[in-house]
Nucleic acid binder design. Sequence first.
DNA 1: TTGCTAAAGTTCCAAAATGGAACGTGAAAG
DNA 2: CTTTCACGTTCCATTTTGGAACTTTAGCAA
Lengths: 115, 115
Amino acid sequence: MKWAELEENWCPVARTLTVVGDRWTLLILRDCFLGYSKFEEFAENTGATRHILASRLKRLVSTGILERTLYNERPKRYQYVLTEKGKEFAPALLAFRDWGKKHMPVRRSVSATKE
Amino acid sequence: MKWAELEENWCPVARTLTVVGDRWTLLILRDCFLGYSKFEEFAENTGATRHILASRLKRLVSTGILERTLYNERPKRYQYVLTEKGKEFAPALLAFRDWGKKHMPVRRSVSATKE
DNA sequence: TTGCTAAAGTTCCAAAATGGAACGTGAAAG
DNA sequence: CTTTCACGTTCCATTTTGGAACTTTAGCAA
């Protein structure tokens, strides 16, 4: 089954997944809620390759979840900000966060200092 | 970046995505909440191939979200049911549902009768 | 005016994941 | 015997992804 077909699914969960049903998109949105808005910031914070990042941002913009706006004229620099539609995704992200906090503890036992 | 690395991410959203961050896993969970529990039911309702379905179910069981139990002795038949950990994913699924209902309307204009 | 840096992408290719269909298994039913 | 059912597994071609290098536009420094 292809992505496109899922868009017409009777189930709203399935349709939602056509936009955020992959490994990186939700991490980009998380960054947006944390106040980040630039390509380089997303690249660094999410760990997604620039390649994938570019395609995900395109999709988020084309679906009206993010808006791409100019923040510097010369040279042209763009930033991505949440639209109202995007902001309304907050409850889902919070639910993921809460569930993860409770049920997905970080394995790595003690220390955060390298080893 | 690999899946495994995301498991140790500081962010609970990222860690949650290591389990449900793909196209099909959430649809399987949706089915579980709708009362389905069998391999064939998931295959039919989600549209995932049996191949992928088997691997996703394995992951959901290994992460303690679903439990695989025998419901028929001979021949051996198994079913998958939500654990407490799995049931607590409900808020996330509901958030996806609500967002999808509001922001991802089904495109196909009228008729449901084929064309 | 040559060189370095920065932001935002794009391009290329090998590696990994996925889709689809066929096959395997154990047991009941016709 | 032959089908059917439920639950997977296997195989291979197609897609998607990861990673690194490259591109473009322009400011700033030497």
